[in-house]
């Protein structure tokens, strides 16, 4: 983990409320050769009147340039959207445990929902071209909120669903998947998106008649974080450890967890 002051190269609105941010992680400090693993994130810092960092997942990384795609959801992301090229932005990188793709083989399914598709782009990019049969299934609220779809399509077979049916399949992405026979025998499933989507995916891979037991189902979880580096224990996710419920840290033990290790509880 490192902290640096990066430089904003570009910060463009790619769709109403969604931005594409390119950050130059200053050259001389990159002698450490730190490269992100898909699913890892960075902490972005603002002035002290906003003491908590904003964690954003890596969407891409190439030649020392970090790409983040984010949605304005509150004060922090709103401030972020006003950053202009040339401005400094302090960050810590690369945080958390990403997706484990070292053992990925055979038929791969990548499931994304909303802004959760951003880290999956880097995941798909790192896996594409490795003789894997990769399918991407992305769900959005409506056509106006579809992001990165064209870029995914260049990498692999991509399906889109929208809740209102304004583009692609009408309904949620899990319903779309279950409407096809094609995905039942996927070996590896990777997902990032809203908690109800992740929960439904976890449940349908563990106990539904649809999926034949995949080798690995990996979910990227979200929680309010404070330190982002594993020290403060503010971002728990309930997990099963030898039959006991324990709280694990989204920032340091995750954000990517094996689906069968998670406990979902009553509310989603």
């Amino acid at each position: 983990m490192k902290m640096i002051v990066s430089e904003v190269i570009a910060n463009d609105e790619i769709k109403s409320g969604f931005f594409n941010l390119l950050l130059k992680l200053s050259d001389n400090k990159l002698s450490d050769n730190l490269k992100p693993i898909p699913g890892q994130f960075v902490n972005l810092y603002f002035d002290t009147d906003m003491p908590l960092p904003r964690p954003i997942s890596v969407c891409d990384f190439e030649d020392g340039v970090l790409r983040l795609v984010y949605q304005i959801v509150g004060k922090g992301t709103n401030l972020l959207s006003m950053k202009k090229p040339g401005e400094p932005l302090r960050l810590t990188y690369f945080l958390g445990n990403g997706f484990d793709i070292t053992r990925a083989h055979g038929k791969i399914l990548i499931v994304g929902g909303g802004i959760g598709v951003a880290p999956l782009f880097f995941l798909a990019k790192m896996m594409a071209g490795n003789n894997l049969e990769i399918t991407v299934a992305l769900g959005f609220a409506s056509s106006g909120k579809i992001i990165l779809a064209g870029e995914f399509e260049k990498l692999c077979n991509t399906y889109i669903a929208t809740d209102d049916g304004s583009f692609g399949y009408k309904g949620n992405i899990l319903d779309f998947i279950r409407s096809k026979n094609h995905f039942t025998d996927c070996h590896f499933i990777f997902a990032c998106g809203p908690r109800p989507m992740l929960r439904a995916l976890a449940e349908s891979t563990s106990n539904s008649s649809y999926f034949k037991k995949p080798s690995s189902v990996q979910l990227s979880m979200e929680e309010h974080i404070a330190c982002g580096i594993g020290a403060c224990l503010c971002c728990p996710v309930a997990a099963n450890e030898n039959g006991n419920i324990i709280y694990r840290r989204v920032c340091a033990d995750g954000p990517v967890f094996q689906a069968d290790s998670l406990i979902w509880g009553g509310a989603s």
Partner: peptide, 23 residues
């Protein structure tokens, strides 16, 4: 100690609230 359920923290004006519960 297992600590409190999430959410455990939230930002406030020039501050934050936490309820980790001494995990």
């Amino acid at each position: 100690w297992s600590g409190n359920p999430p959410p455990r923290c939230t930002e406030t004006a020039s501050g934050m609230l936490n309820s980790v519960g001494l995990q």
